[in-house]
Structure formats: structure tokens, C-alpha cells
Design a binder for these strands. Structure first.
Lengths: 199, 199, 199, 199
DNA sequence: AGGTAAACGAGACGGTACGTCGCGTCTTTCA
DNA sequence: TGAAAGACGCGACGTACCGTCTCGTTTACCT
């Protein structure tokens, strides 16, 4: 039932079109507030005031604060990703390392909160998960499949589970903070996956 | 700043002591409401009314709804754990399997939400994480250390990371639901860890 | 600091205008509750529930229960006064008699309580005092001034004090109930004022 | 139903007697708080904390904050009166003047509030009114009766009403602040009463 | 060029919940 | 055994946001 991000209707709209300036102001304000007060305290009232916009203008596009937060985070992630296209990721190790770097920020925890608090069967939730997490996982899956095709990984291995173990370990440390989380861990976790732990 | 769960003071307290009956009623009501309406909608007003208790009585012990929710979940987990002592867990595989079973419930997501939304540096958060997650992880760590001592695992392996990969994969699937999560996965994830994926 | 009763701004207000229906419902509920439970027990919660209105809607116009009570009483007094225009008051005796009648009711004590408990330097307090008490006093002052002009009262008499003595006696008996308060007293008190007590 | 001010029981009390020190501390704290925060904000909690006393100790003697406030004011008035015995009051003019001085203080308004907000038929209310107001009025009544007996006042004059007019005028100005209230008014109001206003 | 329809800012609306304060009562422990 | 300390059930406080609803105004498209 979400109103957000529906695919553009082909029928020409009548009346005054939505203001792109307002949209940008709203997402910008949301982004700022996410950093300043955190996702719990992100309120529609606050965003409206900060963006210099009426509340109905926000509700016309997003159904509630959570959707707005997701939209703001997605946009930020995509902007970041666009900036990253320069540095090519060729190996699974590079990929994991870059994921750690991106996760290990304030924004990383914001994303994690969205994932944990959202309704996992909702339309928007899936879209969000896809864009901010599963996309990276898919990249990794492609890389592993190539390795499997090249005979570097056994044919019977559950690649999906392997990836979830790598990414999951990062997520766990992000959430619990019981152990550090730094880019050098990429090599360690991959070593475990590749070689196993048996003698 | 949390008032909850302060370590037991040795000095005899003066004045009327806190009512254990009230405490139980509050935690019971919180537990029920967590299941019925979910963690987002758990309100102090609701708990107070349901428990037949005044709001200040709740605030005297817990600073906000989140702390109360954590306390209710901790208690539930501990009661569950106490009931489980009968079935002995001898192998790492048994452990992971039982964790999956426990995670893969409504309560599992509730716990995950707490972990994702709490302030990770807060006192209560750490206590919560310790009791509901890291305790199981510690059990696993003990098992793996025994295996390492017996020469079944190489001496240079980062056991901590290995465990985070196993537990993290479960957590990831719990949150994202992009793949199923059932007890048979215990064997699969352990196989990857033990043998690695290389040819 | 009061928000109530600010003088009408000439500038067109922006945004949704305040609902007159709500205002009336609130004042009506307050009026009813003043009679039913008394001024001490007049609560904003109670008025809101009775009026079918949210609490913030009340606070948007009145700062606290006292201001609301004053507003409700003022309105009632004015409605009563409007109804009274039919019966003309020509003499000071008629005036005092009608004041006694109006004072000597449940509402009379409510008004007295407001006067005694309000901050006498507050804006709203002054407005209240003006409308419910001093207006009647001013009428009396006019009558006495006419008498003075016609030579029926000595030129050197402090008319203001004279009126305060008449009205004050009524107020005192209303508050203390140490002596009865009935309309026949109008004649008596005026006699004292007019003729003095000396032999 | 008031428990306050019951005459000291003659029967020997059993067990530990009520602490006079506590009583004094309570009344002192109440007196201080009456001045500092006003009668509206005088709370039992506040008095208990300030007096270093448990709340039940207060409730054992006074039924609620209003009774306590009255008790504190009565005591203060009586202490003040005791101090005044030195200066003899021989004429009605002296009396009115001294009343104005005493009324025209913070405490004067506190007393007025008590009178306006109390239940006028309550036992305690009557006692309070008697001690702080009607006693002065009675003194005045005695003086006027002497004057009447000496033939200085006509025999048919309603002395009670005359006094209420004098005192009421003061009360009115105290409450409404529409006109000043200073000791020189004693002479003026008495002049009106004595001589009347007619030519 | 004018009409019209939608989006806009502003902000009030009925609500729900917040976290606090104070009530008057109760249950301990201490002196 | 009275008094301090303080927790209790209760109810109201005044505030923050929710998501919706009028307002009057602006801005584009479509006659």
C-alpha cells in the first residue's frame, strides 16, 4: 500500500506537477536529521520544518517516517555507489573490503536498524533490502559463481550460504560491537571460508 | 543513565521495598504485549493498564519502553534457557541447531530489533546482548576451543570470527528473509566452516 | 504570557483557521463541568473528553485550566448580561440589587475563586476582572457621578471608595458566609453610604 | 472530618508521643513555601522534603494541603498578633489602619485565596475565617458598639453591615488591584461611613 | 489568454503516548 | 511503637508527533 517510488504513470498528469525542489529539500532534511538525531527520532514534523515544507507535501509521497528514512538512505547509498564506479572491484576480497568500509559508519547502523525494524514482507522493505544489501551480495555471488565455473570452488558448495556467512559476520559485529570491525577482516573471513578450519 | 538492573547494592535499603508482584505483573504484561502488538507498539501506558499498575511504578525501574522490552525479553530467554537445561548440548552442531530453532520465532525478530535499535554502548544494551546472544556464542566458543585442543581444528584459526560467521548468517537470514532459515542449515554452515569451499 | 483573548489581529491569518465549533464545544464542556464538579476539579483531560476534542486543541487557545475556566465564566456572564439588557437599571439601588442576585449563586463563588486565585497582574486576569466585576462597578460609578453632578452627593466624596465599600461588603459576605446575603441588603448598604452612621 | 487542631487529648497517650519538633518543622516549611511558590504550588511532597519529614507524619495531623496551609497561616497570624499586643488599638481608625497594613502583604493574598477556595461550610474553614478575619471584625464591632452606646452612632444603624463595608472594600482592592490600597484609606472609608455622602 | 486542477505553505484538528508530578495510602526498617 | 524513607495505584499535567483536514496561494497544463 506504499505510495513511494511507484513506477512513473504513463498518463500525463494534470494540474501542478510535484516540485522537485521540495522533494530534494525533504530528502536532504531527512538525511541531515538521520545523522543528527538518529533514525528513532526522525519525525515528519521535524523534516517538514527543516525542509521548509508542509507536512502534507511529505505525506503525498511517503506514507510514514520509515518510508521516508528508507528513501533518504537509498538515495545516499546510490549516490555513494555512483561515486564508487571509478574503483573497479575485481575480486571477492576487494568486494568484502569495500562493504566493510561502507557498513562501518553511522549510516551502516541506520541501514541495519531499517532492516531490523521494517516489516520484512513489505514491498518497500524488499526494495530497500535489495538496494542497500542484496545488491552487494549479488555481486559477490557472481564472483563466486565465476570461481566455481573456473573450478576454484567445489561444485557442491552452497554459495548462497557461504555469502551469508561472510556478510552475516559483518552485520553481527556491526550490531553487537562485541568485536572490532575493520577492513583487514575481509581477508580473515575469506580464508576461513576458502580453506575451512580443519587440520 | 539507565536505572535498570543496577548491580545489587549491599547496603540495606530503607523505605518500602519494591514490590516483586508489581515487577512480575509488569514484565508479564510486557511479554504478552510484545507478542500481541509487536515491539514498535509496546507502550508504557498499555503495559501499565494491562499490569494493573501505575506508570510511575514502571518508570521507577525502567527508563523507557525499550529498556522494559529488553528486560522482558531477557527474562523470557532465561526462563526458556532454564527449561532447556534438560537437553544437553554436546556438539557444536547441536548448539547451532538449537539456536536456529530459538531464533526462528516471533521472539527471534523481537530480539533482533532490540539489537538493531538499541544504543550499542549503553549498559543495558550490553547486558541484553550478552544474555540473549553472546552467551550462546560463548558456549560455541568453548566447544570449538575443545576441538582445537584436541587437534581437530588448526591452531591458527580465528575461532571468534568463525563463530560470528555461523551466527551472523543466521541473523542475516532472520532479518532479510531473502533465504529460508531452518534447522537443517546447521549442518550446511558447519560443513562450509570445517571443510572450506576450495577444491 | 497568556495566549487567550489576544486582540483581534487585522492581518489575514495563514493556515487552517481555528474551529469555532471546537471552541464552543470546549467552552460548553467547561461550563458544564464547572457546575458539576467545581472549579478545583476542572481538568483539561475532563473537558477534552467531554467536548470530544484533543487536549492540544485546548492548549492551543488557553494556557491552563484556570484560563479556560475564566474564559468559560466570562462567556457565561456575557450571555447572561446580554439577556438582561431588557430590564433597564436606572438607579444605583436597582444595580446593587441585581448584582447581589447574580453574585449569590454557584457561579458567584466560582467567579470569586477565580479572582482570589488568579495572578492579579496577568493579562487575562485583568480582562476577567473587568468583564465580570469592574463593569458593574463602572455602571455604578456612572450613576453616582450623575448624582454628584445633580448635587445629590457632595462634591468632595471619593466615589470610587464608596463603590468599593458597597461591592466589597457583598464580596465579603459571599466568601465568608458569616452573614446572610440577600437582595434586601441593597437598600441597607446604600442607606449607610448615603446618610452615614453618625447621629 | 478534619483532624486538625483537635484540642489536646487529655487521656495519656501511649507509646512515643508526636514530635513537637516535627510539627514545627512542617509548619515552618509550609510557611516558607507559601511565600516562595505560592499557595497553589504548596505540595505535601514539597513540605515533607523541606521539613525533613515523612509524608505520613504530615497526614497524621492535617488532612490535605489546604488544611496545612491554613494552619501555617493561622500560626503566622497569631504570632504576628502576639507581637502586636504592645501597640494598643483604641479607635476604629487605628484598627482599620492596622488591618490594611497586615492585609497588604503577600500573606494577605494568601489568606484571601484560602477564603475564596475553601468550602465555606467546613469546620476548618470557619475556624480559619474566625481567626484571621472575623476576629479583627469583632474587635471593630466592639468599638462601634461602644460608640453607639455613647451616642456617637445612631441606634438604628446596622453595625454589622457597616463593618462589612469597611472590610469588604479592603478585600476587594486586595483581590482586584484596580485601585491602590494604602493605610491612608482608613480615614477615607471611615469618613464615608460616618458622614455619608449626601449633601 | 484564461480556466482549472493539482500541489504548495501553513497550521489547526482529534488522537495517542510520552515522561513527570503530586496525591493519599501502604509497608518496611530504624531508633 | 512512632517516625523516616520511599514504593504503590491513581490521575492529571503539558508536550511531541501522528496522519488528516482545511485554508488561501501558486504553478503548470489544457482548452
Amino acid at each position: 500500500m506504499s505510495k513511494a517510488e511507484s513506477s512513473q504513470p504513463l498518463k500525463k498528469s494534470v494540474g501542478r506537477p510535484k516540485s522537485l525542489a521540495s522533494r530534494n529539500a525533504i530528502l536532504g532534511a531527512a538525511r541531515d536529521l538521520l545523522d543528527e538525531v538518529g533514525p528513532h527520532k526522525l519525525t515528519i514534523d521535524g523534516v517538514a520544518k527543516r525542509a521548509g515544507v508542509g507536512k502534507p507535501t511529505i505525506y503525498r509521497t511517503w506514507a510514514n517516517a520509515q518510508e521516508l528514512a528508507m528513501a533518504a538512505l537509498v538515495e545516499r547509498v546510490e549516490v555513494g555507489a555512483a561515486a564508487d564506479t571509478s574503483l573497479k572491484v575485481h575480486t571477492i576480497e576487494d568486494l568484502v573490503e569495500s562493504i566493510i568500509v561502507r557498513l562501518n559508519t553511522k549510516r551502516g547502523r541506520q541501514v541495519a536498524l531499517m532492516l531490523a525494524s521494517g516489516e520484512p514482507d513489505g514491498e518497500l522493505f524488499k526494495a530497500f533490502a535489495n538496494r542497500v544489501i542484496l545488491q552487494g551480495r549479488q555481486e559477490g555471488l557472481n564472483l563466486l559463481q565465476h570461481m566455481q565455473a573456473r573450478g576454484e570452488i567445489r561444485a557442491d558448495v552452497d554459495l548462497s550460504m557461504s555469502l551469508d556467512m561472510i556478510f552475516g559476520a559483518l552485520m553481527l559485529r556491526l550490531l553487537l560491537r562485541h568485536e572490532g570491525l575493520d577492513p583487514t577482516l575481509a581477508r580473515g573471513s575469506l580464508a576461513i571460508i576458502m580453506d575451512g578450519v580443519k587440520v
